[in-house]
Design a protein around this nucleic acid. Sequence first.
DNA 1: CATCTC
DNA 2: GAGATG
Length: 558
Amino acid sequence: MQRNHSAPQPSVSVSVKPNKPLTRKTSLLRYDTSTPPSESSFTGKTPSVLPSSSQRPNPERRVVSDPTGGSLVLKNSTGIASMLQKNQKRKREAIKLVPEDQQIFRGLDFFYLPADDKNPKRKMRITKAKEYGAKWTTELEDDVTHIVVDNSLTYEHIMKYLKETLKVQALPKRAIFVNEDYPIDCIAFRRILDAKQDKYAVKGAVTESEEKPASQRSPQAAQDEEDISRRTPPREDSASQARDVEGEEETQEISQNPSPARNFQREMGFNDPLAEMIEFVQTKKHLPLDDEENEERPSSRDSMQDPGDSDDSRERSPSPVRKPSKKKHRGPKGSFNQNNFSCMTGGTGETTSSNPNARTIEILQEMGDFYEQVKDQWRTRAYRMAIGTLKKTTNKIRTAEEAQELPKIGKRIADKIEEIVLTDGLRRLEFAKQDPTDRVLQKFLKIYGVGPSQGLRWAQQGHKTLEDLKANVNLTANQKIGIAHYDDFDTRIPREEVTALASSGDIDFLITKPSTTTTTPLLTFLDDLVRHLTSTGFLVAALAVPRGDSSSKWHGAC
DNA sequence: CATCTC
DNA sequence: GAGATG
């Protein structure tokens, strides 16, 4: 019972990586409405597109919007409120829905801000979203899943408007703020993306550290925040950036991911620590639980700079200069870190698991492996080289443009990199995995005695099943046995002894005997043993008996 | 941009 | 697939 090609080497496959008992917090997003909203007024500037309640404290007073109204009406602040109050009586136009399997937004409820479709551009976006199955809601009801905010609006304006004009006291439970790019990107990739990515954050959301000092937070919340933020590159923000430049210490004052909902909650005057903590964790739950504590936390401007953010007044540090290494705060887990072992990293010595592009590399690697399997040496090489430069890159590559600047990375792979960052996957790879030829190849490769070369040849010849092979192909003796015992070999043998490592595809015996200087007696013993086991019916197939009838190695199956 | 080498 | 080439 030997299956060389599938037998893992325990010494290399063993993972000493201790699973960090990081428990994923609940994903429930709660807004505590038990605390009355604070009466504190806003001092921020009022956007032209949103009504200022200080100027118009009474929405009801406003005239009904003219259905044919143009931009003037909108700018005069009748747009949102009136649409909300009038519940949009206009007839819904027939939407040409995309094929059902492409309706990625089905079940989702989009609330747009401003909440009308008078802006042609927004109307187009709304229409598109509806084509992909979204429901467009003009009231901030509980079904709303996404609040899609025009990029021209800033967070401050939105909050002010929601609170003072609409008297909103709590957001829909499931709702999350996204900017107008989010639905577009989702459609582009035909899948729901992570709405909490920074590039979809509503502009102007303030950072956590600016909201209130850590000392005012509940200890638990602060603790959790600190813990999580260690592996959470903070989003860049003008204020926090300025502080970053002068103040070296960043451990306690990490600018946090903007959390519109959180800010909303705060600005509404809710300060319940538990809800706060839950909400905060909610903003982080999309982050991988992979233990990356050895990762040198990139400086904010390093990794989180958003090129798409065309914010006018704030300028960003152009050069991602890494701060000189400083002492890192270690969690309660202590200083042990498996990444400190050189054996945990590849042989090139050029990279570590702390590489911010690790996930990207991982997927590109799969692509490379795929092309290697289908014997596309040039693409294989191209991916290898691209991975090579990516491994040398210390800052996280997020966009295609960014990636294509790098050597050995052209447009094609650059686009793939962006897709990986955005979707945490690659459609091309998924397709490749489903590719009939590849699936057949995978099947054939599991046959004992069949390697990549033969397997690919058969697959390309159009053979699909093992039956095809038995009927149409000249099989070696081993291959016949391999097919005959296909399921046996394919079934892994779980053994408690090795459970911690993996499962084993085979079991190896090393037979020896004290006081032997020659292999001769052992060989005869092995021969006898095999002969006996075979006659007993325990061993059913001999697969490799290299040297005559008495060999030091014997491969077979039981 | 098609083609070719790597 | 990247990169050079005409």
